[in-house]
């Protein structure tokens, strides 16, 4: 089991491969390797091999859209990538069990601390031997196979991406989605909307997208954003200065003696002195 991709499209899959008949030799014969060391064509080829070996290799992927990832990551109560990854992996194991797969062993790739994760999974799925390792895709052929499924599936979804936005014909030549790919860079510049930023295809939580929006899109402020302490204080000062002035200009209804009824304050309603 592993996840794939830190691309800006951030299509980010967790998938599992279940080996119905643990023929390790056969799996080796499929020559699956760490998907990162393979070209796209090699990955496609190996994927075909895997698909043909369906008598003893089964696979499933769980697709998390970049939109799900960014809304989770940018959430008020932070939901980090690791937790999201764990929850998705747990969901996949459960999915396999629910489909009658008799799981004996589970191999999981992780970027976070392996021990805690392994303990968590073992506790959740008693009777299954769980192995969590960093870089598991280069250690266990079964995880390599999984990573190939994940990457190929991702590539296909990205290629055939159906934009939810009504943007007409979107240039499909968006490259690999890695920040150093010139095609990706060009695409990101071309499709930056000054107000909306990017289509949901792009992961907003991705720092490359954030940086581009910070420099080229209009600024958007949320009430839960952290403001630099000094600047926030300054803004508050400016405000009170202004309200003081407008009050003394005979404009504001917030004279010191007058307290607006809570019916209005609770409803954020106030009088105006100018349009």
């Amino acid at each position: 089991m592993r996840r794939a991709g830190d691309q800006c499209w951030g299509r980010w899959f967790t998938e599992y491969v279940s080996v119905r008949f643990p023929k390790k030799e056969e799996l080796k014969a499929l020559k699956v390797a760490d998907s990162k060391t393979l070209t796209e064509a090699e990955r496609e080829k190996l994927f075909q091999n895997l698909d043909e070996a369906k008598s003893y290799v089964g696979w499933a992927v769980n697709i998390l859209s970049p939109n799900v990832i960014s809304t989770c990551m940018l959430q008020r109560t932070k939901y980090n990538l690791n937790t999201l990854s764990h929850d998705t992996a747990i969901g996949l194991v459960q999915y396999a069990l629910d489909n009658g797969v008799q799981l004996k062993e589970v191999f999981v790739d992780t970027v976070g601390p392996a021990d805690k994760y392994e303990a968590k999974l073992s506790q959740l799925f008693p009777g299954i031997e769980v192995t969590v390792r960093p870089k598991a895709d280069s250690l266990f052929p079964i995880v390599s196979a999984a990573s190939i499924c994940a990457k190929v599936a991702r590539d296909r979804v990205v290629k055939g991406w159906n934009f939810a936005e009504d943007l007409g014909n979107v240039d499909a030549d968006y490259g690999s989605g890695y920040p150093n790919d010139p095609k990706t860079k060009a695409w990101l510049l071309k499709y930056l909307d000054p107000v909306f930023g990017y289509p949901q295809f792009v992961r907003f939580s991705w720092s490359t997208a954030q940086t581009l929006m910070d420099s080229k899109a209009v600024t958007v402020h949320w009430d839960d954003e952290e403001e630099d302490g000094e600047k926030a204080a300054q803004r508050k000062n400016n405000r009170s200065m202004l309200s003081y002035f407008s009050a003394s200009a005979g404009g504001n209804d917030q004279t010191p003696t007058h307290q607006t009824h809570r019916f209005f304050t609770e409803r954020r309603l106030k009088s105006l002195d100018t349009l």
């Binding site: 005979g250 404009g251 209804d253 004279t255 007058h258 009088s271 002195d273 349009l275």
Partner: peptide, 12 residues
């Protein structure tokens, strides 16, 4: 702009 009867100041 008229005089607000409660605050004695201008209101819209």
């Amino acid at each position: 702009r008229l005089r607000n009867p409660s605050t004695d100041a201008a209101s819209l």
